[in-house]
């Protein structure tokens, strides 16, 4: 169980996490439609789904944390690490996929997993942007809690929308692709 949580930190995982982080950063800066101040309907949210599905929760978390720091540096809004940490926590929840039996690499992703995935997304957003980010914002940046809550509510809602509406089809497509590759059956020895 712990091994599934931490993931296997070999070279392949490291490269995948790095590319995930770069994708997250690039999509956050260029691939988003702003809906509110500091928040946007961002296609970047698809990254933790893919990284989490293939490599596990902790790689997804690192990917988002690094990716968000990167986006902060190149995006033109300054360094706000409260949101980076929030996104990291969200990545952890979204990436829980292998923990409850969804095995994309072997083509296993059923309706049951889709439901758990949706619950995880909502829960992760609630914890990351309802608790972690506002607390850190209040603690380190002492901004208005009221405004922070509204911002994180908008962020959480748009994230959940992207994670569910875009994430689920992509998960089904991915698992189907992998399933068609792994349907080799060992021939019984004669």
């Amino acid at each position: 169980m712990l091994k599934k949580f931490v993931g296997e930190w070999n070279t392949k995982t490291i490269v995948a996490v790095a590319i995930g982080a770069a994708l997250f950063g690039a999509l956050m800066v260029w691939g988003s439609i702003p809906v509110f101040t500091n928040t946007s309907l961002t296609s970047a949210m698809i990254v933790p789904v893919v990284v989490g599905a293939l490599f596990g929760p902790l790689p997804a978390m690192v990917s988002l944390l690094v990716g968000n720091c990167l986006a902060d540096l190149i995006g033109g809004w300054g360094f706000w690490f409260d949101w980076s940490v929030g996104n990291g926590v969200l990545g952890l929840f979204v990436g829980l996929l292998p923990m409850y039996g969804a095995d994309i690499k072997n083509g296993i992703f059923k309706i049951k997993h889709a439901i758990i995935y949706t619950i995880c997304c909502v829960l992760g957003n609630a914890i990351a942007f309802g608790i972690v980010t506002p607390i850190m914002t209040a603690l380190f940046y002492s901004a208005d809690l009221e405004i922070t809550f509204i911002q994180s509510l908008a962020g959480g809602l748009s994230n959940t929308a992207v994670l569910v509406i875009v994430g689920l089809p992509i998960l089904f497509i991915l698992s189907k692709r992998y399933a068609s590759r792994t349907n080799l059956v060992e021939e019984p020895e004669e």
């Binding site: 490291i14 490269v15 982080a21 770069a22």
Partner: peptide
């Protein structure tokens, strides 16, 4: 150092991703 590699690799990949995009 594995985290450091991730950071540096991510930075290097961004132009590739922008070009692909």
């Amino acid at each position: 150092y594995k985290i450091c590699t991730i950071v540096s690799l991510a930075f290097r990949t961004i132009p590739d991703i922008a070009r692909d995009f």
